[in-house]
Design a protein around this nucleic acid. Structure first.
Lengths: 348, 348
DNA sequence: TTGAAAGCGCTAACAC
DNA sequence: GTGTTAGCGCTTTCAA
């Protein structure tokens, strides 16, 4: 109780009184503005320490129009249905962890904070937009994997600094980062072919996600350049279980299969299990190439040969782009493309 | 540019002018305060819609002293060293995802936002405390698995609403939730014994975490009641890799082993791999019981018999406790204990 | 280099 | 039931 009273009452004014200067001067030393007499500076600092003063963020934001935090908005169009609710799925996905990790790496040293927001239906989207308009944050990192997501456009119209996690589906002025999926899929195709695989199939992610579609198309394209006219595919949903089912399906329909490109490591892990259940040897009987190089890749049996998706680096770059456009709002929007690489382990 | 001007200039005042009422009245309809004439209410709402008005959060916070957001502080004492940096590890741990998920489940419907904060060394801790004192958030959820973490006490001294993810190591007045580790370990022990295991060992988590220590002690205690005077143990660090190594070690040192309790599913998954590498059958030769019932449990080969740790429910309850104490700051601190349950699958 | 003073946009007494 | 008004704590011209 008493503590609370104290907390509430220590303001710039008090510090100024203790230091025997004006509020303006105290403000100047706190914000490190030049032209403050070194002696006064010391006095003021002593007063701050003595009073235990801490600036009030709301008051500061009110005048500076800066909050010192940015939002990470995770978006998903409404129509999608899964067994698990969106919240459970997203936070359990290793991809999300890598994303957050990359963002925090650049935010923390600068003392910028991260506010987590979900937008999985129209109501949540309106709420999000309202929140952003209220000036809660200085900018948004928008993670929006689905091609038909309305959020990128909605956020662009806000004229609030924002960065998107992929190339926008429609031409809108927003900065973005992108992984060159084609580079990755070509690497996978070349590797499978170099191994001598003759009967190659693929397990794709959900085809309403931009990345999934590009990986499928890219892989097929690369294989066609090796003379493979037809590449059977089964659609998964990026979960391990879906990879397992897809692989089983592939084995049933296409028993001569000797190579498979799986669009995520988690699904590849499932595929490995399906293979193991049928006593199919990897890579001797079937070679498996994953995508992502997430933590599970190393833990698989056999460890996964995969395409490294530099998620953390991309997330860090998004954050840097965002911070840049907060600093200088009138810069043109920028794009940064990342090149995936091949990581050879044991599965192919 | 013009948009930005517009955004900046739409205030309560403008809405009031358009509606032909006072600012106070507009404020009342926005905040849904009673005693507003229904007719006026409509007029005001129309004016709000017409102007596209959105309240300024900073101005609002300044007077209400509420921000509408809470922090999730994830803490770790400095001296710990791992291969991976803290940021990468924490966000990759499935536990963290479940925690976040449980929190968001109760925060979202109430429109409260989550700010993510890390505290892995003294500097970060000071920063965190400063941030909290600035009134950025209305309360804190403190995830602090380590017994010697100074943060719980530091936060308690702030007299800011807070909830801890475990029983505090020292007696301090803070609300907390807790999983009854003993219940869980007893379930594991009883199950292993009922299966007829004669040579039982355990793989523990890092022993500077409260939960790890309790699981080890609890398991030993429960086994001793079944006449097992000595239970060998190896310490892991909750990673899959550490589980693998620990299991290999156990197999070397203790070849007659026929049952093992592993303090997390991730480590159990690693243990399963070590077992598989040596062609030890599970559960026929060695029965394995995990802990957590996280997503990997179902994905293991064989699927893991495990102790369900109701992480999401606990996180949700922490959030409810926090919201409650934000609402009524002078309530006494509360504790809620959760009971783990046994989930029988194939590994034991 | 420093101080005085004008707000930033909103809520909450208080008066009508 | 509605309007008036006094701040909330801070930054930032503008003078001195």
């Amino acid at each position: 109780m008493s503590t609370r009273e104290v907390r509430r009452s220590i303001t710039l004014e008090h510090v100024a009184q203790v230091a025997g200067v004006s509020r303006a001067t105290v403000s100047r030393v706190i914000n490190d503005v030049r032209n403050v007499d070194p002696a006064l500076q010391k006095t003021v600092q002593a007063a701050i320490a003595a009073t235990g003063y801490v600036p009030n963020q709301a008051a500061r934001s009110l005048v500076t129009r800066r909050t010192g935090s940015v939002a990470l908005a995770v978006s998903e169009p409404e129509h999608r249905t899964f067994n698990e609710p969106f919240i459970g799925r997203i936070f359990t996905d290793p991809f999300f962890g890598r994303l957050t990790s990359g963002i925090m790496t650049v935010l923390r040293p600068r003392g910028v904070n991260l506010v987590l927001m979900l937008a999985e239906n129209d109501e949540a989207r309106s709420h999000l937009i309202g929140y952003l308009r209220q000036g809660h944050v200085d900018g948004v990192i928008l993670f929006s994997p689905h091609v038909d997501d309305p959020l990128p456009r909605m956020i662009t119209e806000l004229s609030l600094p924002a960065v998107l996690s992929r190339r926008p589906s429609e031409p809108i002025p927003i900065s973005y980062v992108e992984a060159a999926q084609q580079t990755g899929t070509k690497l996978a195709a070349d590797h499978l072919v170099a191994r001598g695989c003759q009967h190659v199939a693929t397990i794709s992610g959900p085809l309403d996600m931009a990345a999934s579609e590009e990986r499928l198309a890219g892989f097929r394209d690369a294989m066609s350049r090796h003379g493979f006219a037809y590449i059977p595919s089964v659609e998964g949903n990026f979960s391990q279980e879906s990879g397992e089912k897809a692989m089983a399906h592939l084995l049933d329909e296409y028993p001569e299969i000797d190579g498979v490109f799986v669009a995520s490591d988690l699904m590849a892990q499932g595929a490995l299990l399906a293979l193991q259940d049928r006593n199919v040897r990897v890579p001797e009987d079937v070679a498996v190439v994953g995508f992502d190089d997430s933590a599970v890749a190393k833990a698989c049996r056999p460890p996964l040969t995969t395409i490294r998706h530099p998620v953390e680096d991309m997330a860090a770059e998004m954050t840097r782009l965002l911070l840049g456009s907060i600093e200088k709002p009138d810069q043109r929007v920028k794009s940064v493309i990342f090149e995936p690489t091949l990581v050879v382990r044991k599965s192919a």
